[in-house]
């Protein structure tokens, strides 16, 4: 699947409460230690956690790193992250987000981080 969500620029029509996402950020060439960044993402279409990240990359913050080269159908596993504070790992393209949800996204394995959410599997 092509991951480009909006093939042409379009009017954003919110269909629900925005999603709040706290996301792990770390660039080894710039940061001395990891930090969490909060994004408020308009709910303009049904979203999985993975399409939420695409929405951020496309429209809010192009510097956020995760593996975009991903299958989008729950197979390849390169969108696997630790979600929430309980440390449960999921393939993020298979997890739907309700409008108004608050989600914490951490790398699948912190010790393997290359940048932000990108790890070596």
């Amino acid at each position: 699947m092509s991951h480009i969500l909006h093939p042409t620029p379009r009017n954003f029509h919110e269909i629900g409460e925005p999603i709040t996402a706290e996301i792990f950020r770390f660039d080894p060439t710039k940061d001395s230690q990891p930090r969490m960044q909060t994004y408020v993402v308009p709910y303009t279409h049904r979203m999985s956690i993975f399409t939420l990240l695409r929405e951020i990359y496309e429209n809010i913050d192009p510097t956020l790193a995760f593996r975009n080269q991903q299958c989008g159908r729950g197979i390849c596993g390169t969108c696997r992250f630790q979600i929430g504070v309980i440390g449960k790992s999921v393939k993020s393209c298979t997890v739907p987000l309700e409008p108004g949800a608050h989600v914490i996204i951490m790398p699948f394995k912190k010790e393997k981080v290359i940048r932000d959410l990108v790890i070596e599997f």
Binding site: T63, A65, R115
Partner: peptide, 12 residues
Amino acid sequence: QAASNTRIYNYE
């Protein structure tokens, strides 16, 4: 132009 000039895993 990539929005960030970081060289590490810069998808743009």
